[in-house]
Simulated scan of single mutants.
Amino acid sequence: MTNTPTIARRTFLAGSALAAAYSGPGLAMAAPTAFEPPWTGGGTVVRAGGVISYRTIGPDTAEPVVLLHKVGAWLADWREVAPLLAARYRVVAIDLPGHGESVMCGPPPHVQTISESAAIVLAVLSELQVERFVVAGNSLGGVIGVQMAARWPERVRALILASVSLYEGQTRAELDMVEQDRDPQVWTEDWRPLPRTMEQVARFGTVNPAIETEQNASRARADRWVRPSERGVALTDTASTLKATKQPVQLIYADRGYYTKYIAIGREARPDATIVELAEAGSFVHQEKPAETAAAMLAFLDRLA
Rank of each mutant, 00 (worst) to 15 (best):
R256N: 14
P97S: 05
D181P: 01
N208I: 08
Q215D: 07
H110I: 09
L96D: 00
S240N: 11
I120P: 03
T241E: 15
A28C: 00
R303V: 13
V164P: 01
A217K: 12
P193I: 01
S16C: 13
R151E: 08
A217Y: 08
W152V: 08
G257E: 10
A123P: 02
G42Y: 05
P248D: 06
F12R: 11
V92K: 05
D272N: 08
A28S: 05
R157C: 08
M148R: 01
K70V: 14
M1G: 14
V143H: 04
E131H: 12
G42M: 04
F284W: 07
V186D: 03
P209E: 04
E168D: 14
A158D: 01
E288P: 11
V249W: 03
I120K: 00
R219C: 04
E288W: 12
L251S: 07
E63M: 05
V207H: 14
I144H: 03
A21H: 10
F35D: 05
S165Y: 00
G15I: 04
G266D: 01
V276T: 15
L27K: 13
E168P: 12
L122D: 08
R132N: 11
L251P: 10
S163P: 03
P271Q: 00
N138C: 04
Y22L: 07
E174D: 14
Y262A: 12
V65K: 02
D272S: 10
R172G: 03
T61F: 09
A234Y: 11
P248A: 07
V285W: 09
Q147C: 04
G257P: 10
G205R: 04
L304K: 02
L194H: 02
V186C: 01
E212F: 08
T4Y: 00
A31P: 11
V51L: 10
R196F: 11
T44R: 09
A30K: 06
A20T: 11
Q200I: 07
A123L: 02
G41A: 03
F284A: 11
D272I: 09
T238A: 13
G106S: 02
C105Y: 08
A220M: 12
A296S: 15
W74F: 07
I52M: 03
P59L: 03
G43C: 05
P59Y: 04
W74L: 08
A202G: 08
L242Y: 13
G232W: 11
T44F: 05
V285C: 13
A34Y: 10
I252A: 11
N3P: 02
G98V: 12
G42F: 02
A217V: 13
P209A: 07
A269M: 03
P209L: 05
E80K: 12
Y262E: 13
W187H: 02
P5F: 00
R172K: 13
